[in-house]
Structures are given as C-alpha cells and as structure tokens.
Design a protein around this nucleic acid. Sequence first.
DNA 1: ACCTGAACACCGTTCAAGT
DNA 2: ACCTGAACACCGTTCAAGT
Lengths: 192, 192
Amino acid sequence: MQTRPIRADARRNRDLLVTAAMAVIAEEGPDASLNEIARRAGVGPGTLYRHFPTRDALLAAVSEGRLARLRARADELAEAMPPGEALVAWLRLLVVHAMTDRGLGARMMVAAPSSAGVDCWAMLRDAAERVLGPAQRDGSVRADVEAADLVELAAGIAQGAADAGRAERLLMLTLDGLRLAGGRAEGFSPRS
Amino acid sequence: MQTRPIRADARRNRDLLVTAAMAVIAEEGPDASLNEIARRAGVGPGTLYRHFPTRDALLAAVSEGRLARLRARADELAEAMPPGEALVAWLRLLVVHAMTDRGLGARMMVAAPSSAGVDCWAMLRDAAERVLGPAQRDGSVRADVEAADLVELAAGIAQGAADAGRAERLLMLTLDGLRLAGGRAEGFSPRS
DNA sequence: ACCTGAACACCGTTCAAGT
DNA sequence: ACCTGAACACCGTTCAAGT
C-alpha cells in the first residue's frame, strides 16, 4: 500500500483545525460547537468533516501530543525514583490529565478506538505499563493489577471528583484501599 | 409560609412529564431531547420549562424514587448481614445505579444541588452513612473514610468502566487497594 | 483531490396569546 | 395560574458546485 503525497493545502487546513479545536475546547470543553471550530479555523464545516469524520476523531487529534508527553513522563519518572513512588507520581499526572479541558482527557480514556483514528486507549495503556511493571517487580503493587485498571480508575476518579483536592483524596484512598490496614474482614474480599 | 393548593391540571402535567422523561431517557440517555419529552407527554415545551427550569431539575425528579429505594435497601442490608458484607453489597447496588440509563445515575451523583430541586447528593450521602457507620464501628473500614468518598468513588467507577464486569473489578480493586497486602512500600503512602 | 458554503432537520429556550 | 405553540438562534451534518 503506497501512500499518496498529501496536498499542501489539505495538510495546512488540518493543522489549522486542530489548533482552533484546542483553543475552543479549552474554553468550552469537549462538547464545543464544531461549526464554531471550523469558523475559527477559517474553513467551511465540510472541510472539518472531511478531515475528522467524527467528533472523537478530532478530540483524539487534539489529545495526541498530550498523550505522547504523558508516556515520556512515565519513562522519566521510572528512571528518577523508586518504582512505588514513580507509579504514584505518574498516576497523579494521569488524573490531572483526565481533568483538563472539562473532562476531555477522561473522555478519550473511555472512547472506543474505532471512531478515533488515534488510539488513545492504547497509548495510555502503553504508558501505564512503563511505571506499573517496575512497581510490580519491586513488590509495591499486586501482580494481578493491569495497566487497563490504572487507566480506568484514573478516568473514574477524575470524573467522580468535584475538584483537584477531592481527586487527590480519592486517588490515595484507591491506592491504600478502604479496609482497615492489617485485618481483612470476611465479607470484604471479592466473592471468588 | 402557607402553600397554595396545586391546580389539578398542573399536578397532572408534572406527572406526565416525569413519566415521559423516564421512558425517553431510558432509550436515549440523560441528554435526550427535551422537546421530544414534552411531545411524548402531550404538552408544549413551555410547560416543561415551567415545571423544570433546568434539565437537571427534571433528571433529579426522575431519579428521586430510585434514590429513596437505594436508601431503603441500605437499611435492609445493614439488618440482614454483617457490616462489612452489607457495605460491599450496597456499594454494588450503588455502582449499578450509577450505570443505569447511560450514566444518568452517575450524573446526578455529581450534579450541583442548587439547580436540582431534589438534592440527590444529600440523599445518597444519607444512604451511604447507613452502611458505612456500622462497618466502621465493626472495624471493617478505616475510620477516616467518609460517605462522600463512597459516593464519588462509585460514580467514578461507573463512569470509568466499560461494562458491568469491569465495574465489579474496579470496585474490588478499590476496596482492597492496589498495594501488596502486608508490606506497604515507602513512596506509596500519601505524602502528608 | 480538496474546499466552499448554502441548506436541512433538529435542538434549547422564550414569550405573546389564550383559558 | 397555568398552558399553548409559534418563533428565534444555534447546532450537527450533507452535498452540489466550484477550483
């Protein structure tokens, strides 16, 4: 499959759209008007639809750079501190990311990859594994925890919390667990 | 403050609206068209706005009965089984509730009470306390956990999980905590 | 091959006119 | 005191016509 050269005006319009989308979404959140974004980019609505057939495709394009940065940060943290600490520090970043732009981040953590073009879900799982693996080998985290668990929990915390302070508290509760340190009550373990 | 008698047609229209809203929202979720709901109730859009000035006010009215039932179930469970088990069983119900009607439940757990008329948030916290209190006195749960934590965590899990199976897993992870049972790694506790 | 922008159906919301 | 429904501004989405 040979790829055709991309026309310069098409490439330029795509960039204009993503830039405009970042600005409008920062102001109005992920449900911002698509016509408004096209207007701000200086193109017709049809051009927006040609480049991004669904809203999620556009949102994914907006998120792509942030996700790449989040993955890079995972590597940096894993190198800079003990595995347990690196995991916690990265989870904090993940929750903050999920809360940015009125929940754009969290929305992309749940979105179906099919409609998106950029597979946000895979990028996040990939990033999570870089801090999760060491923490498990180190013995800080149970071996049965998966990268997907971390991503979904972070997305959930971001959406369930009213503000950043509450999110931090929920994250700590999740890490420590709600049960009493030490004795595990009987009915309190998963029923199989 | 004496309350005036409510006109029979007004009362009737209100009931028609709530019933229609339940049906439409069950099909299309909490973002369903308000005009469609009014149409289905057989009233003009103006009548809907007269009874429910905001969308959240209507959604709260739809949720009211379910929340009352959830509170009653908390009492029943607390009476029927040991505190730790009752808490887990009720949290399962809470997560299921949060997932019904494409996230209507979860949305009402986060919604600002001001706009709603019915204070869903307070009803849920009240219900949560009925299972949380005994579990804490019993020693199954840490004393510093609050009812609000349970509600926000359940709402988060419901929104972060793709389906019921994932939600159950996230709930169990949250209850148990992610860290290794026994030894707590250093960087793994809240930094003050 | 890509872009434009008018056009369509629909939505939330308001408000003059009715009873 | 409450209801009606036409009306307005806006939104998502499409598509014939252009370059």
